[in-house]
Design a protein around this nucleic acid. Structure first.
Lengths: 210, 210, 210, 210
DNA sequence: GATGAATGAGGATTCATTCAT
DNA sequence: TATGAATGAATCCTCATTCAT
């Protein structure tokens, strides 16, 4: 009982401290993302990031052992957002037939790229430098796994094919078509062209699978 | 006659000088590529590059106004190689029917990525940082234009579609499938899997176009 | 009371930090002046200055954004010293009649040039290069303004003349005569010759004004 | 006879060669002056100067052993021009009474500063850096000697004074008043103000001497 | 824990000068 | 003698990281 009585006393404190830590960490990740987007990788010095986050460089190094680890955290946060979208989308289309499902997935992929396209671009560009290429793969591979699961569940709608290969082809193509459209072909983002892009990408994948 | 006899006397000199310049420039580009591949962008300091090229930093700056310009030269050289492969391939398949042509193009794309995959990878990663994203587009767009021309010439084999969009979809997909396979999925490069990748990619594109 | 008792706890820290900063800044300015004097402008590299100041280059750039700004700080410090002498002198002679006042000002001008003649010389030589020519003018112009004010107050002792022009003529002449004597004619600094120089300069100015 | 017969044959050649040398030297000095004026000391690299002179760096070093020697040559040429003006002026006023003579000398000093004020300014600023401060003194001292000679010749018009000291006072003051007016007080160069400056400077010197 | 002053290796670039052709 | 490619020491400055307070 005593112990339990104490908890309310200490927990808040720890919470406060934990919350503060959490807040600092968040502020740092947020500041990093902001600077990366607004000023580019080369301007993103640790001192600048700390300043933008409203903490000292010392504190930055309290929470992140290196600059790289900070960038990795930004990447992780961004990818987690994307993965959540992907998971939701896959869950949503789980029982839809392939044409409908693919169309929805393509649309979602474009939407996802639009969440924070500038950050996405910077990360796509700077990510290699962190030696975390694998990271991006972690992302791709999870999506790829989920998509393969979907295909497996809809095997009867498919022609006879190797699911691994098929998932690779589909995921890679969809990613490339939407990524390039958003990042390098902004003209493709007009309502109308984007619609046609969805049509065509869907067509590409559906014809391929069936 | 005399005057002509003299020429050999002077010409070699100029040649010698020009050759020396040319050799220095080549050595620098070559050294840059080598270091980029072997040690990564961050280790590629101008002094290191000059040393690796067997010339002085001063000479480096005689021929290249900045470090970036050197990297750009490496990119340009690499892309010119790729473009040559692409041009040749398109010329070669010009009169082939779509299935054969696409299969050949996919195979060539893989080959092209294999010319110097490590360099390709580093450049793909660093290119954004040089502010020469347009460059890669220059490349992609030339290929895209050539491919559209091919499609136009084979319009009767196609379903009714917008050539611009079709070229975008095909070029982007082929590039992504081969690029990722070569750079991120080395397991796909076994003779057998590579063959299946060609099959699948070809299937993807052909079904899409027809 | 408690809160007040705490202050001593925090204040020293801040003070310590502020003092350290201040000490670093002073050491840098001092080191710059010293090197400028002993080794000349061209030897005054930022690394050398930092070393001489007993701090790292990094610290130098923490407090001065560029080499030039350091030199400017040295100039400013020196000029402030001179201006203080000038202000004091003018205040001191404010109520003296022109002959006594001018004699005193000339003597003070020589004294001022003797405060740190080597530094004065290097700065006079290098100042133009810093793009701070205006600075020296700021100095001259403040003195010129103060002197004009003196003349104005003693208008009744003067012949009829344009105060602006008169101040220009007097200030420029006194400055040149003392500056050149101290910097280029060290032989003029023997007790006796210096005395005659004061006589003559005073004569020049007094006859001119009356 | 033979030998003499040959001379006409060789001499022209030598002449040609000497003329060419002379022309190259002149072109280099001229180019240096031009770059110094237009782009400043820091932009005046030897390569740049050689290029501007239309010769190779190698040739530059054929005629000038160092960059400094080139700058010194520019200074020498400029000072010789000024000295010529000074000599002419002194000769011209030799028999004039002091007031007329001084007035003329002041006017000539202003004119002299206007010959190439920008060059004069750059040289005045950069000269110290060449370690040729003595040079400027060579100039001043020649003028000072000539002026002293004038004073000596007009001793009967003077009050009793030390000619060395008097020459120092006069030459220094005139130089400073005209130099500053031309270089730092361009507003003083309006026809009218310049006239008053001449009046005042003359007044200053004449009252001092008599 | 937080702070921010201090560190110093390292990097891009310049330029006076040399020397092979 | 002219050329201009080559040299490389030297310079200014940045930034990830540490540590005394």
């Amino acid at each position: 009982m005593r112990a339990m009585a104490r908890k309310p006393l200490t927990k808040p404190r720890k919470h406060a401290s934990q919350d503060r830590s959490r807040a600092t960490v968040d502020a740092l990740i947020e500041a990093t993302a902001r600077i990366l987007v607004r000023e580019g990788f080369d301007k993103a010095s640790t001192n600048r990031i700390a300043e933008a986050a409203g903490v000292s460089v010392g504190s930055l190094y309290q929470y992140f052992p290196s600059k790289e680890s900070l960038v990795v955290a930004v990447i992780a946060r961004h990818q987690e957002e994307l993965m959540q979208i992907a998971r939701d989308a896959l869950a949503e289309v789980a029982s839809l037939p392939i044409p409908k499902a693919v169309r929805r997935l393509v649309a979602v992929a474009i939407e996802a790229h639009r969440v924070d396209p500038k950050l996405h671009r910077v990360l796509a560009e700077q990510l290699p430098r962190t030696g975390r290429l694998e990271n991006i793969d972690v992302f791709n591979r999870e999506f790829y796994t989920l998509f393969k699961r979907y295909l497996d569940a809809h095997r009867d709608e498919l022609r006879n094919l190797d699911l691994d290969m098929a998932a690779y082809v589909c995921v890679t193509s969809i990613e490339a078509l939407t990524h390039n459209a958003v990042l390098h072909r902004s003209e493709m983002l007009s309502e109308e062209v984007a619609g046609r892009l969805v049509d065509e990408a869907t067509h590409l994948i559906v014809k391929y699978l069936q």
